[in-house]
Structures are given as C-alpha cells and as structure tokens.
Simulated scan of single mutants.
Amino acid sequence: MQQTQTAQISAITTDVNVVVQAVLAMALGLFIVGVVGFSHISAVHNAAHDTRHANAFPCH
C-alpha cells in the first residue's frame, strides 16, 4: 500500500513541476515582450527588432 501512495505523490509532484515551469516560461515571455518590445531605450528596442527580423517574424 505504501508503494502505491508513493507513486501517486511522485506523479502529483511531477504534474506540479510541469505547471510551474509552464507558468514561469509564460511569465518570462510576457516580460520580454512587454519590457523589451516597448522599451524606450533605443538600443534595447532595436536589438529586439533586429532579432525579430532575423527570425523571419513580422513586426510591422
């Protein structure tokens, strides 16, 4: 019986880790788009702009 409970706890921990990683990845993406994409510092904005063009991503 203890082995089954350990397996269930392990599966729940894995699911929580996946969700936490996904949320952090989305937060990082939003931060990059929000801060770098709308930055008033021209060097930062131009670097993001050039990166979008280098990856064939339309930006305007």
Rank of each mutant, 00 (worst) to 15 (best):
M1L: 12
Q2A: 14
Q3P: 02
Q3A: 13
T4M: 12
Q5F: 12
T6G: 01
T6R: 10
A7D: 08
Q8S: 04
Q8G: 00
Q8K: 04
S10F: 04
S10Q: 12
S10D: 12
A11R: 07
I12V: 14
I12T: 13
T13I: 06
T14Y: 11
T14E: 15
T14F: 12
T14I: 12
T14D: 14
D15M: 15
V16F: 14
V16R: 11
V16E: 11
V16I: 15
N17S: 15
V18A: 15
V18K: 15
V18C: 10
V19D: 09
V19S: 11
A22Y: 07
A22I: 08
A22V: 08
L24D: 14
L24T: 09
A25C: 04
A25I: 06
A25V: 07
M26A: 05
M26G: 01
A27C: 10
A27G: 08
L28F: 02
G29S: 03
G29P: 02
L30D: 06
L30C: 07
F31M: 10
I32K: 05
V33E: 04
G34F: 01
G34T: 02
V35D: 06
V35H: 05
V35G: 00
V36R: 06
G37N: 03
G37F: 00
S39I: 08
S39K: 12
H40V: 06
I41D: 10
S42M: 00
S42I: 00
S42K: 03
A43C: 02
V44S: 05
H45A: 09
N46E: 13
A47T: 09
A47M: 10
A47L: 11
A47P: 01
A48D: 02
H49Y: 08
T51A: 11
T51C: 05
T51D: 01
T51E: 05
H53R: 13
A54I: 00
A54R: 03
N55P: 00
N55Q: 06
N55L: 13
A56N: 14
F57G: 06
P58C: 07
P58N: 13
C59K: 11
C59I: 12
H60K: 13
